[in-house]
């Protein structure tokens, strides 16, 4: 497992491409080796890439409002396929409608994600916690 190799992509049938490119640019600038899978990425595609690359973390985006369905069961699938220690982040417009973010955070943390981010998050601060979280797992 490498401290700087991370996988990035937009999960499910989601085509929103802009945020994905921004996260890639910022994290690359922060010294990460980003393997960007782009939009419409399945859970297995994230995991395949993470295994080959020896990634320390997977960053999942969900923008179109179906995050609750697309993101469920991801942690279990990672464990099943040999990635028990991988850091999992999720962010974007995770749910539809006006729901309190703390409620959304709990929902996704229960699914096994280590950190959950709202669309307004500053990606540079994400880079910092990412470095710490990966180091803590080694």
């Amino acid at each position: 497992m490498s401290e700087t190799n991370v996988i990035l992509g937009v999960i499910g049938s989601d085509c929103h491409a802009v945020g994905n490119k921004i996260i890639d640019t910022v994290l690359t600038g922060e010294g990460f080796r980003v393997t960007n899978l782009g939009v419409m990425v399945s859970q297995d595609e994230f995991i395949d890439a993470a295994i080959e690359v020896g990634a320390g973390a997977i960053l999942v985006s969900s923008i179109y409002g179906h995050g609750e369905i697309d993101c469920a069961g991801f942690r279990g699938r990672c464990i099943e396929r040999g990635l028990e220690d991988i850091v999992l982040y999720v962010g974007g417009n995770l749910v539809i409608g006006k729901r309190d973010f703390s409620e959304v955070e709990t929902l996704f943390k229960d699914m096994g994600y280590d950190r959950v981010f709202p669309p307004t998050v500053d990606i540079k601060s994400v880079a910092q916690s990412l470095r710490q979280d990966i180091a803590a797992r080694q």
């Binding site: 490498s2 190799n5 080959e52 690359v53 020896g54």
Partner: peptide, 9 residues
């Protein structure tokens, strides 16, 4: 084969 350069070993 297996692993990218610097990837899984």
């Amino acid at each position: 084969a297996g692993g990218t350069d610097g990837g899984n070993s």
